[in-house]
Write a protein that binds this DNA or RNA. Sequence first.
DNA 1: GTTGTTAGTTCACCCTACTAACAAACATCG
DNA 2: CGATGTTTGTTAGTAGGGTGAACTAACAAC
Lengths: 362, 362
Amino acid sequence: MLPADTRRHHLSLLLQCLADTGPLSRADLARATSLTRVTVSDLVAELLADGLVAELGTKPGARPGKPATLLGLVHDAVLIVALDLSDDTVLQGALIDLHGEIVTRDAVELGSARGDAAVDLVVALVQRLVATSERPVLGVGIGTPGVVDDKGVVRQAPNLGWYELPLAEAVGARVGLPVSISNDANIAALAECTFGAGNPDGLMLVAIGHGVGGGILMDGAMLGGPLLSAGEIGHVVVEPGGAPCACGNRGCLETVLAVPHLRDRLAAVTPDAVASELEAVGTTLGAVLAPIVTTLGITDVVLYGPAELLDGPLLGAVRAAVAERSMPVVAEHLDVRMASLARDVVLTGAAAHVRFTQLGVV
Amino acid sequence: MLPADTRRHHLSLLLQCLADTGPLSRADLARATSLTRVTVSDLVAELLADGLVAELGTKPGARPGKPATLLGLVHDAVLIVALDLSDDTVLQGALIDLHGEIVTRDAVELGSARGDAAVDLVVALVQRLVATSERPVLGVGIGTPGVVDDKGVVRQAPNLGWYELPLAEAVGARVGLPVSISNDANIAALAECTFGAGNPDGLMLVAIGHGVGGGILMDGAMLGGPLLSAGEIGHVVVEPGGAPCACGNRGCLETVLAVPHLRDRLAAVTPDAVASELEAVGTTLGAVLAPIVTTLGITDVVLYGPAELLDGPLLGAVRAAVAERSMPVVAEHLDVRMASLARDVVLTGAAAHVRFTQLGVV
DNA sequence: GTTGTTAGTTCACCCTACTAACAAACATCG
DNA sequence: CGATGTTTGTTAGTAGGGTGAACTAACAAC
């Protein structure tokens, strides 16, 4: 840690205040951060020079003393390149501003590309988006399926044929920008907390798609764990000795809750039995969630996946099952709901991740 | 954050290196921390002046160049006052050195003291221990039952009659030392990782006594959560509609696993059925742990409580149940065992907490 | 003895944030 | 309307922290 890191930290503090509270004067910032007005002025000057902050005129409201000049975040001063690699066929990309608004979209067919060829596609997509941007690019954020460590090494992502691949380093070297990489579900949880209504002190996102994954934020941080697998709820066994699962075990939650299995199951019953089938699955999920939610004291559980399947009897059953099996205090504070940002959670989460790593803004 | 914090951080880095690796020379420290030799010398001078570090003579091994002088931690340069308030009748205290070795013990009867009277007892015990110490006291660490926030405010501890009590502030003001307070189970988990064999990246401790509590360390940090209740596994419902619990719900894990209930249950069966009873309880606990362990990707589960009940068929059944219901990758890396430090976990954990907050040494 | 290597220190310099003092711009009150 | 008091933001000057360059000290190997 250099003395320059102190300065970066203080710059982050200021940006964080402006992001949380809206426009403030230098004196306001000094009070909020308990830095000196002098220091704040100096730091603000740097942010003004970078264009991240702009003066918005004098503060309204008639009070004695020299009128304050308000400072506000310039949300499109820089843009973030965000990639979502969670789809099997298409790599999604976007340019996103600091408020999480998508400015431009782009995509590339994955085709049969795997391994290095897939990396080439990622780099090409990033470069196209960078070329599109009319503003400086703050960095590149990537959400990928699989296991990713905190240094941007993809430990394994079978869908893309990546094993022990230092993707952040590789992409960073080729595009000349800082690159942040995370697991898609973890990053979706981050998006829910950053741009949605999620509580970063205790939120779990359950991603239901081809498989069942998830991500957890506790005390403001994404959980990783020794295996970098925190949040991976899909392979909790719900039916010992049940249907075999790709993981090697039997009766995993994924064998019941993953979208393909869910659709198969619904197709096998009469239309008027659909609701009760969904409820049964919801109850199963709730029974798995209850120990987790109670033990972690989580307040937000967010489901991410096809609303036509999840947002109805299933969600209701989850709520009921969790409430029945949790400590009352926890159940009172708990909110089980669908993800608020629907389809772009991974993209916006990748942007949030970059915003955090580069600017320190949560 | 002041520039002085940078220095404190660097001092912590050096202490951490010495604690992890054993005696090192200044040049070794410079390499390990990637600070300059100049800076390390300066920092070391400060640590030498404080007595936290001592020169141990020249480094053995014949190599060219000036021989290095080894520096080592002085583990009893300062002592820590640690308190364990988890017992209903006696407040335990100890003086503990930086290695977690107990130097002196002391205790005070709680009697019927509650509220402010209990605080007085705590202060008296601390003052007695401080007076006993032949070395400077680094700080006071307290492990208490109940809910404690990160600022040392006891939100509620019914056993002691404390509600919204700023205990750290109160005790700190009266004894003139920095005070760190945490939940007893959380702090026990910390002890297991600091002085025992626990993995701080993913460990859960389950404390089984009068009630059932717990603490979790993930990614090196104690989990708190929005309700400050992370780890509280006792009130997960294992038998919907089962026996009523103090929490207001029915069929909580605590109604099955808490020591009094466990003893009652064993007393009601014939001696040769004891093992199978314990196994049944162990299986229940394993079923609760499995979703948590799998979803967090935890590698260490530690049981803390009476070994004659836990360390046998019950532990074995927990292992089996968790393994059956978890993802194979997780089960492979998982170790379910008894706490290694037995009866002094809370005391040593409190010491570890102080060591961390005051010196930054994990 | 010479050479090369490693450890630890001295010195001059840069960066950061702070205190003290001040100018600008406003409200309020007699 | 002018004097007074407040608040904002800036301009010095200072103290603390870390760094690179160069130096001394101490040793092995030839």
